[in-house]
């Protein structure tokens, strides 16, 4: 099968005046349709930069980026959903209206969009909170709403930049399970940035490891753990091997 995302030798240099900063020296990996790829690496190694290149927000200075295939076409102007570390909900809009923002920007039909938004809110476990304002929701709930917002226009690709980084450990574990369920139900291709090593292994069908200064691809492997994933897998032998492998690469043993 053809990869949905194909990155080969991607290079990114930030320029400010005469100074150049090499943020990504060489990123190469493929993502299959329906994959959940976890991008893991230390702070400052270029994960967000890479995600922004995928989102079409940054140019790159070399290599190839190709998204979409004949059977899985990709329209860069409407097929991206984004989730950030902060929920970034508009605080003057009710939750359902926040979820609807992408559909308004794209000019999608209001009535059908609303139904879809309500269904998505139910899927992320926020049924009954549609008409609340963001401040009436906990951080984890706000992040669920942000996930619903990223899905509402039915994008082919969802980019998540440390979406659970601001949550407490317990909520984070819970959200991991939720995300896996949402991913299965929606069938989206997801690129998930994290600096949580066990989070990467737990979530990813594939893990891409970046090392810092400048970002270099250190590893890229398929995670052969069965689905659905369960929390007790974190204690099994193979899970431990995967996490050790990453710790080793990041020089943190």
């Amino acid at each position: 099968m053809e990869p949905f995302i194909h990155l080969a030798g991607v290079r990114k240099v930030f320029r400010k005046g005469a100074t150049e900063f090499l943020a990504i020296s060489e990123a190469t990996f493929d993502v299959m349709p329906g994959d959940l790829v976890a991008l893991v690496g230390p702070s400052g190694c270029g994960k967000t930069t890479l995600l922004k290149i995928l989102a079409g927000l940054y140019d790159y200075d070399g290599g190839t980026v190709r998204i979409g295939t004949g059977t899985h076409p990709f329209d860069p102007s409407r097929d991206i959903g984004m989730v950030f570390q902060q929920p970034l909900l508009l605080r003057w809009r009710r939750i359902v209206d926040n979820v609807l923002l992408p559909t308004e920007l794209l000019g999608l039909p209001a009535k059908a969009s609303r139904e879809r938004a309500l269904a998505l809110l139910a899927m992320v476990g926020l049924a009954g909170f549609e008409d609340k304002y963001p401040y009436e929701l906990s951080g984890g709930m706000q992040q669920r709403a942000a996930i619903a917002r990223a899905l509402v226009h039915d994008p082919k690709l969802v980019l998540m930049d440390e979406p659970f980084g601001a949550l407490d450990a317990l909520t984070r574990e819970k959200m991991n399970l939720e995300l896996l369920r949402i991913w299965k139900e929606s069938g989206k291709t997801i690129v998930f940035v994290t600096h949580g090593i066990s989070e990467a292994v737990f979530l990813g069908t594939r893990v891409v490891v970046l090392t810092a200064g400048p970002a270099r691809m250190a590893d890229n492997f398929e995670v052969q753990l069965p689905h659905p994933r369960t929390l007790d897998m974190k204690t099994n032998e193979r899970f431990g091997e995967y996490t050790r492998r990453i710790y080793h690469l990041l020089g943190m043993e």
Binding site: I80, M82, L88, L90, W92, P102, L105
Partner: peptide
């Protein structure tokens, strides 16, 4: 929020949409 602007940009939101939906109410 710069990230919010990025979100709007990926969906090709216009300057007017940014103003009327995000900047002004904010």
């Amino acid at each position: 929020e710069p990230d919010l602007l990025d979100l709007v940009k990926t969906l090709r939101g216009s300057r007017w949409q940014i103003f009327i939906k995000i900047q002004l109410p904010g």
